[in-house]
Every structure is written in C-alpha cells, then in structure tokens.
C-alpha cells in the first residue's frame, strides 16, 4: 500500500491545523437520529398487501425482495398490493 510520492515542502507555519468545533457534526448527527426515529415510528402512507399502512422498514424489505409493482400499486383500491415485504428475495438484475 505504501506509495512514495514526491512531496512539496510543508510550510509548517502556514499549514492549517484543521481545528474545529463539533457543533456542525453534532447537529447533523442529532437531525439524523431524529429522522431515523421518525422513519422507524411513522407510517409512510403506502398501503400493504394486507391493507395496512406500510412502515419504511416494510418498504425497504419490499425493495430488497424484488421491488414494487407499479401496476398493483396504482390500481383501484382493493385491486392488489402495493408493498409485499415478504416476497422472496431477488438479486438485482
């Protein structure tokens, strides 16, 4: 992994120490945590095969298990499923 590179001389007096406070990163992490909790707790508004509201975790499972059929999802009410998180797992093509 070692790769010798000709290095320009480092001007140690002017080279930034790259010091910074943690607030921006902390704010991003806190917002991320809130979004994560929201995603875990709130329903998405998408209907499942059983007629219930799908959680985002259900949608993730549906995406990884073969995706969502738009014909079924956009059909008239009761005509078919929108999300089936229990479909067999498929390889992406």
């Amino acid at each position: 992994m070692r790769r010798h590179t000709n290095q320009p001389p480092i001007d140690r007096a002017t080279r930034s120490e790259e010091r910074r406070l943690i607030w921006a990163g902390l704010a991003a992490a806190v917002i991320g945590t809130l979004l994560l909790l929201g995603g875990l707790l709130l329903p998405t508004g998408v209907t499942t095969r059983s007629g219930a509201q799908a959680s985002e975790a259900d949608m993730v499972k549906a995406f990884r298990h073969g995706g969502i059929s738009l014909a079924a999802a956009t059909g008239p009410a009761g005509s078919g499923p929108a999300v089936d998180p229990n479909a067999p797992q498929a390889c992406p093509t």
Binding site: A24, A27, A28, G39, A57
Partner: peptide
Amino acid sequence: PHPGLATAPLLLAGVLLLAGGL
C-alpha cells in the same frame, strides 16, 4: 412520481446523516 408510493425516506436520510455527522 407515483402518488401511491411517494414517501420521504426518513430512515435512509437519518442513517446517512447520522453516519456522516459522526
């Protein structure tokens, strides 16, 4: 683009923001 499926991916955005911020 599909009204029946459009949703904000909160979980996904949360994981990426959390990992990025940390």
